[in-house]
């Protein structure tokens, strides 16, 4: 559970975004706002366009209509690779890590520093070491190649690479998918810690109901091309919308909620 410390400054404003892939309509008039300092989740069933929306926010895709503003700039600017100053203000952790397989882990983490700063090699090495230590990887992992790491370690390494520039905004695409419950919970804690320590705003795409209950401040549920609902988990759990109810009140949703309220009362 996080103490919401968000100010009322929007860092991401998605307004009236529509997306089409050929005849398939993915989004219709989707609008949402992410405030500075919050952990915001985009949830929804498989194929509802969560990852597509994320890719549009970070400028990898252009929506068919509507506009997206990211840290006060139009996210379409990101398609010019020289939008450097904007690129270094956010970090992205892709679903499968997307670590460069021809580089060691430490080299992977160092890429943004090498490309965007003029720091000395020694200092880059130290900052990289700090970030690898922050995400809790063991000391000998820096010299390993991605293929020599387990899935969980690769995820951590990708997170280290995403936060190496101290971004204001951190995007996580399904950060806990495919991790065992212990590691997934550890990952949630890690995201919260980093958020607190580095003052991040976190936007994540996730299916993980436990994460949604534990670390997320606000959730937007996508479905049928629209934002079905947006708010805190408590608000959404109390929603009457059948689609949202199905999503949060399936057997797993109830278990996660029980688990969460049990833990919360235990803590009190």
């Amino acid at each position: 559970m996080s103490i919401a410390v968000h100010t009322e400054t929007p860092v991401i404003e998605v307004s009236h975004v529509s997306t089409r892939f050929g005849p398939t309509v993915v989004h219709q008039e989707v609008s949402l706002t992410v405030m500075k300092g919050e952990v915001f989740a985009i949830a929804g069933g498989n194929g509802c366009g969560k990852s597509t929306l994320l890719r549009e926010i970070i400028g990898l895709l252009t929506p068919a209509a509507g506009s997206i503003s990211l840290l006060g700039a139009d996210s379409r600017e990101l398609q010019h690779t020289d939008g450097g100053s904007l690129h270094r203000r956010f970090g992205v952790m892709f679903q499968h890590g997307a670590l460069f397989s021809s580089m060691t882990l430490a080299e992977n983490v160092a890429v943004p520093l090498r490309e965007h700063t003029s720091l000395s090699a020694g200092l880059i090495r130290d900052i990289v070491a700090l970030k690898i230590a922050l995400v809790g990887l063991p000391p000998d992992s820096g010299v390993k190649f991605p293929r020599e790491l387990s899935g969980g370690m690769r995820r951590r390494a990708a997170l280290a690479r995403a936060i190496v520039m101290d971004p204001e905004l951190l995007f996580l695409d399904e950060p806990t998918a495919g991790l065992d419950p212990m590691i997934a919970a550890g990952f949630d804690d890690l995201v919260l810690d980093l958020k607190r320590l580095l003052g991040l705003t976190v936007v994540m795409v996730t299916h993980d109901l436990d994460s949604l209950w534990r670390i997320v401040d606000r959730v937007a549920v996508l479905g049928e091309g629209h934002v079905l609902g947006m708010g805190t988990m408590e608000q959404l759990a109390a929603s009457e919308d059948p689609a949202i109810r199905n999503y949060f009140h399936g057997p797993r949703g109830r278990a996660a909620q029980l688990n969460h309220s049990g833990r919360a009362s235990h803590r009190d």
């Binding site: 090495r125 130290d126 700090l130 690898i132 230590a133 000391p139 820096g142 320590l197």
Partner: peptide
């Protein structure tokens, strides 16, 4: 934050 992780960091730097 840095001083808490300093030892771990140095261990990373030393690992070659």
């Amino acid at each position: 934050l840095v001083s808490v992780h300093w030892d771990a960091m140095m261990a990373h730097v030393a690992a070659r």
